[in-house]
């Protein structure tokens, strides 16, 4: 059983390290990254007895963690209930349901600022009624452990890593990968990618058009003082970056992968002597009918000409407002950064 499961995890996320151009750039091409934390959280729960054969698992997710959990729970024959929003569109909903999970969608637009709170409330109500077990992707330390093997694979293939560029959602992959790489290369720079209106790095919650990264709550798995630099990208920048990734490398991936490519490539070009590793968390399955559909892109006003081509350096997270911004986080805590008053101009 366990044997077929690790085969299944490998099939969904084969852990390929892809060399890109310029030659100091490479990427971990996960495809379905979240099978790693899903597997780790469920497996360690089974091992320490917090999850039994008849446990019902619940989780909030806008998509990829739901899919990861559905794959793993199906393999372990565990019941799974997902509390999501309209970011889980009908094709993904059908995929998850076909794997035997139930999907509950809260009545909120995907981009609403409080969507995470609404999902969580629905989940807590359900837990109270049924006694289900919450896998807690945002606060489960097992989430970090899941990234030891991907980190090992990256170091095996790429050697010393100078800069790691990762989108941030739960903090699991960015902080987890950095933790294991820094056990050997403590000077490695960690660059996080967030989006405007996400609370992760000091902005107030507001409407977010770009999903798959960012968050409207602060996860316990996010260690702010691990980050050297933060970039904020708008939806248009990430969508155009996904197209660029496809055109330049033939890899058709989602906008979070596009975002990682855009920022990582910028670093690789800025410092040709540094080895830069980007994290590509997702594939393009969910984006064929929107990001990869020119009609949809046009109808929603996403145009290549409007996307920022270079990051603007800001001196405080609140100054990051649109396009593409970057900020020297310098391995500080969130309060240190927020309380720091930049001098005028």
């Amino acid at each position: 059983m366990a044997h077929t499961l690790s085969d299944t995890v490998d099939a969904h996320a084969p852990l390929k390290i892809v060399s890109l151009r310029p030659e100091n750039l490479a990427a971990i091409d996960f495809r379905v990254m979240k099978v790693f934390p899903a597997f780790n959280i469920i497996e360690s729960g089974l091992r320490d007895g917090t999850i039994g054969p008849n446990t019902t698992i619940v989780e909030t997710s806008s998509g990829t963690m739901a899919l990861g959990l559905a794959i793993v729970c199906m393999q372990f024959s565990l019941k799974l209930h997902i509390f999501g929003d309209r970011a889980i569109e009908p094709p993904l909903k059908r995929t998850i349901e076909e794997l035997g999970a139930e999907v509950h969608l809260v009545e909120a637009t995907a981009s609403d600022a409080n969507v995470q709170h609404l999902r969580k409330k629905a989940l807590l109500d359900f837990m109270e009624r049924t006694g289900a077990t919450w896998s807690r992707q945002y606060d489960n330390l097992g989430n970090h452990f899941s990234y030891a093997r991907p980190a090992a694979e990256a170091m095996r293939r790429f050697g010393k890593i100078d800069v790691l560029v990762a989108t941030v959602g739960s903090g699991g992959s960015s902080c987890g990968l950095a933790h294991y790489c820094r056990a050997f290369f403590p000077e490695m720079r960690l660059v996080g990618i967030d989006t405007f209106g996400s609370v992760l790095f000091g902005q107030p919650a507001s409407r977010r058009d770009l999903r798959g990264l960012g968050n409207s709550i602060l996860p316990g798995n996010l260690f702010h003082d691990a980050f050297d630099e933060i970039h904020w990208l708008g939806a248009n920048e990430a969508y155009q970056a996904a197209h660029r990734l496809h055109r330049e490398t033939s890899l058709k991936r989602g906008p979070t992968s596009g975002a990682a490519y855009l920022v990582a490539k910028w670093y690789a070009e800025q410092s040709p002597k540094s080895k830069v590793l980007a994290v590509f968390p997702d594939d393009s399955n969910r984006y064929e009918h929107n990001v990869y559909d020119p009609t949809w892109m046009r109808a929603n006003g996403y145009q290549a000409a409007l996307a920022a081509a270079e990051p603007v350096l800001v001196r405080h997270p609140l100054q990051a407002d649109r396009g593409w911004c970057r900020f020297n986080w310098s391995r500080r805590s969130l309060t240190e950064v927020i309380d720091y008053q930049p001098s005028p101009n």
Binding site: F145, A148, R149, E153, M155, R156, G159, Y180, F184
Partner: peptide, 20 residues
């Protein structure tokens, strides 16, 4: 558990050290 996970990474770095 965290250290054991990191020891797995050490084997990867060692493999790279040997091949390079």
């Amino acid at each position: 558990r965290d250290q054991i996970a990191a020891f797995g990474c050490a084997l990867a770095v060692l493999e790279r050290a040997i091949s390079e």
